[in-house]
């Protein structure tokens, strides 16, 4: 019961805040797309780097880069 009440209030809030006006809804989608692509790309990149740890150039680069003052 409590859960359904929470669901109801949350969905009501979401609907009234984001979905009720077409302009706000569209803006939410556009802003969400930008945020989503940034988040998605960084998430996949992190997972990818973690999965291939130690093999990629950025992992072994430090061994070969000479100090800047040379």
């Amino acid at each position: 019961m409590a859960l359904s009440a929470v669901t109801k209030s949350v969905s009501k809030f979401t609907y009234n805040t984001f979905f009720k006006r077409e302009s706000v809804y569209f803006s939410t989608v556009v802003v969400g797309a930008v945020a989503f692509s940034i988040y998605f790309n960084s998430a996949v990149d992190n997972w990818w780097d973690n999965r291939n740890k130690g093999k990629q150039w950025k992992d072994i680069k430090d061994k070969y880069v000479k100090p800047a003052e040379e």
């Binding site: 109801k8 969905s11 979401t14 609907y15 984001f18 979905f19 809804y25 989608v29 797309a33 989503f36």
Partner: peptide
Amino acid sequence: NDSSRAFTYFMLGASGTV
């Protein structure tokens, strides 16, 4: 029940976002 309507809009918006 407003949650179903909100859910429908959410799903539409999510697909638009992706």
